[in-house]
């Protein structure tokens, strides 16, 4: 199968490979897929004031899966969380010119960013009763 130039570029020079501390308060982690299906994506975001300031991924999967997750990390940096939530797989597939048999790779990347955002939101929903913002005095205790 011939890959598009953009897939090859992301595969050979993946953006934002790595991990963030999944236990950190400002980090959301999404892990989607299954080894048995041939692809697993881990996508992480770090959020400040509702804006995604950093994103990292690790992907087990074909070149199109690696490229899809690499592209999404590139896109979401600097986006606010609501906008990132509205990323559609079709945009990813179009940007990378994925053939029909590889559309599932873009679906997985969409699922991964949504899962990361939900994880971040869940962490903060759980903390909601505590009044925010935390003052400097409290933080230094």
């Amino acid at each position: 199968m011939a890959y598009s130039d953009k897939v090859i570029d992301h595969y050979e020079n993946p953006r934002n490979v790595g991990s963030l501390d999944k236990d950190a308060d400002d980090v959301g982690t999404g892990i989607v897929g299954a080894p048995a299906c041939g692809d697993v994506m881990k996508l992480q975001i770090r959020v400040e004031d509702g804006v995604i300031v950093d994103a990292r991924f690790k992907t087990y999967g074909c070149g199109s899966a690696i490229a899809s997750s690499s592209l999404v990390t590139e896109w979401v940096k600097g986006m606010n969380v609501e906008d990132a939530m509205s990323i559609q797989n079709a945009q990813i597939a179009e940007e990378l010119s994925l053939p029909p048999v590889k559309i599932h790779c873009s679906v997985l990347a969409e699922d991964a960013i949504k899962a990361a955002i939900r994880d971040y939101q869940a962490k903060h929903a759980a903390r909601a009763p505590r009044s925010e913002p935390v003052t400097e005095a409290e933080a230094s205790k």
Binding site: I31, V40, K42, I66
Partner: peptide
């Protein structure tokens, strides 16, 4: 492998079979 989340989990001592993967 440096790019593989499975490799990372194995390095962290996580048994991949213990995880409930969502088939897709």
């Amino acid at each position: 492998r440096e790019m593989s989340p499975l490799w990372e989990m194995v390095q962290d001592g996580i048994d991949l079979n213990s995880i409930q993967w969502a088939a897709h």
